[in-house]
Design a binder for these strands. Sequence first.
DNA 1: CGAAGGATTGATAAGTATCAACACGGGTGG
DNA 2: CCACCCGTGTTGATACTTATCAATCCTTCG
Lengths: 251, 251
Amino acid sequence: VTGETDAFGRPGPAILAVDPWAPGNPVKGEMRQLLTDEERAELAALTSVVRFKKGEKLFRSGERAHWIFNIVSGVVKTCAGDDERQIVAFLFPGDLSGLSSEGIYINSVQAITPVTAYQAPVAELRTRFANNARLRQHVIYKLFQELRRAQYHAVLLGQKTAVSKIATFLQMLEEHERSRGEHAGEIHMPMDRSDIADYVGMTLPAVSRTFAALIKRGVITSRDRRHVTITDLAAFEKMVAVGAARDAGLP
Amino acid sequence: VTGETDAFGRPGPAILAVDPWAPGNPVKGEMRQLLTDEERAELAALTSVVRFKKGEKLFRSGERAHWIFNIVSGVVKTCAGDDERQIVAFLFPGDLSGLSSEGIYINSVQAITPVTAYQAPVAELRTRFANNARLRQHVIYKLFQELRRAQYHAVLLGQKTAVSKIATFLQMLEEHERSRGEHAGEIHMPMDRSDIADYVGMTLPAVSRTFAALIKRGVITSRDRRHVTITDLAAFEKMVAVGAARDAGLP
DNA sequence: CGAAGGATTGATAAGTATCAACACGGGTGG
DNA sequence: CCACCCGTGTTGATACTTATCAATCCTTCG
C-alpha cells in the first residue's frame, strides 16, 4: 500500500456520509468522514491502491464480486447490469462501490475521469467486519446515504419535462458540492452530455437543447461545457421538483 | 406485544433479503428470513404492534424519526418528501421503513391496504445494535436489497416508452412474488392505477391506456383491474428493459 | 494539421400530457 | 334490497414535447 492520501492529507480508506440519526450536525446536510484515523490505518492494511484511466472499467456486471472499491479521487459511473445506457449513479471520492447479489456484481462501473481507488477483498473485509462493530455501523450509515441518493434520482427521473430533469440534476450536483464544502458558486460537471442523458433518462440531443434553453432564458450561464452558474435562482427553483432536495435530505 | 405471527406462524420482526455475498442460494434470487427465532424474540421485546387502515399514514417527511417500522402484513407506499405524487417504493411484509437523515424522516409512508407492522424505537434499537453484530449484518443485507430495488426502479423510470415502463413494472411485481415463493402465474397489483402512475412516472390516463394496449396486443390478460397474467412471454420480454431484471439481481 | 469523437442544431414524426366527458363499482343510506 | 353517489378508472380529442434521423460544428488529441 502506498501513501495515498485524501483531501485532508490523511491516508487510508474514507467513508463520507451524513449521520442518519444524530440531529444537529455542525452544518445541515454536510457529510463527515466517518472513519477515525486508526480505522483508516487498519483498513489500509487490507487494501491496495488501484488506478484507472478515463473510460476504463473497474468491474462488470456478472463477474464474481471479489472486491469492494473506495474512491479516493476521480469520478465513476455505475451502470445497471452491463447496459451502459442505464446510469444509476455517479460515485465520487469517499464513496463505496461493489454492490453484489449472491456473490455477483450487479453493476458495471467505469471511470469517467482518471480514478484512484482503494481495493479491498470482500472475504477479508467480512472477517474484519465481524470484529469491528463501529465499522459496520459506518457501512450502514453509508448505505442510508446511497439509498437517499437513489430515491432522489428516482424523483429526478419521475419529472415529466426536460427542464425539470436538468434543473434537478444541476441541483443534485450543487448540493453534492455543498455537502463536501466544495461549493464555489459554480457547478462542475465531470461527466459528458451522453452520460447526463443516460442518467436523467433523456437523449443526448434533448440534453443539449435543454441546456441551451436554460441559457437562453437567462436561468444559467455556462463558462464552458462542463461549468454552469445559476443566475436566476427564483426561476431555477421553480423548475426543480418541488421541495425535493430539502425533503429528501440531500445528499 | 401481542402474538403477531408471520406467514410461517412465527412471532416477531422479520427481515427478508437475499445474501449479497454468499453464492449458491437454494433458489436463485429467493429471499430468506435473515433473523433467527431467538433474534426475533429478542427484538419483539422492544417492539409494539401497530395497525393502520387503508390510506392511513405511518409517518410524514419532516417529523422526528423516533420509530423504525417492520411490515408484517399489507402494503405501504413510500413517497419522496411529502409529495404524494412521487412514489419511490412499495414495501411488503419483511421490509423495513423509517429512513431518516439527521434524525428526520425523509419519506412519507402511507398504507395502501390494511397494514400490520412492528414499531421499534430508534433509540433502543441503536443500543441493541451495539451488542448484536449479527443484527447489524442483517440490516446491511437488507439495505443492499433496498439499494438494488432502487436501482431497478431507476431503470424502469429511465425507459422511454409507456409499454416498456409498464412491462418492467409488471416484471418487478412478478419477480417480487417469485422471490418469496408466492408466484401463481398471475400478478397481483395491490396498488391502484394512480399509485402505479406515480411510481412509473406517467399520468393516470397513460397507465390506463397502456394496460389496454397490452391486452389488445394479446401480451397480457386481465381478470380484473388488480390481476394480470402474461400470455405472450416472448413479446412481453421484448418490451422489458433489456436484461435488466437478471442483471440487477432482482429483487 | 488532420482526424475522430463529442456536441450542437435542424426537421420530422411519434408519443404522451393535458383537459374533459363518461363509465364503472363499491359502499352507504333509505 | 335497491338506488344513489362518489371515488376510481376508462376513453376521446388536441397540443406540446421530445425521440429520432441526419447534417454540421467544435474540440481535443495524435
